[in-house]
Amino acid sequence: MALDQIIVTIAGLLFSGGIAWYFWFSESKATRIQSTSSGVQETLITVKGGYSPDVIVVEAGKPVRLNFLREETAACSEQVIFPDFRKQATLTPFKTIPVEFTPEKPGEYGFQCAMGMLHGKLIVE
């Protein structure tokens, strides 16, 4: 095997390993929501090619209001769906659209766009 081939092979394998680690094995940082005086756990989520923050920690039994601000017109992110709470919202671009519900049971609940391309996670404690 020529030197260039060895280099390409090693680089390719390292790169693949890096991808796997970055996307699968590293945890993204969770954002813990503070509740306001009225008891609502509220935060702003920016939608642009993804949700940021995308991992949100809330307390069980307290109402949650997630304000989605979609800063793009790409059709993919038009809807946000919380299948476990049967909630969906059509996100009007550049407008803040609230999604409200009260998670009763602790656990991890996903939310996503209509096609499942964008993902977020709600951790209820």
Binding site: F23, S28, K48, G49, G50, A74, C76, M117, L118, H119
Partner: peptide, 19 residues
Amino acid sequence: SHFYTGALAAIKNRSANMH
């Protein structure tokens, strides 16, 4: 342009998509 903005935003979130 939307492929790049979408891809960058996704990578920041440690996710990847069509973009």
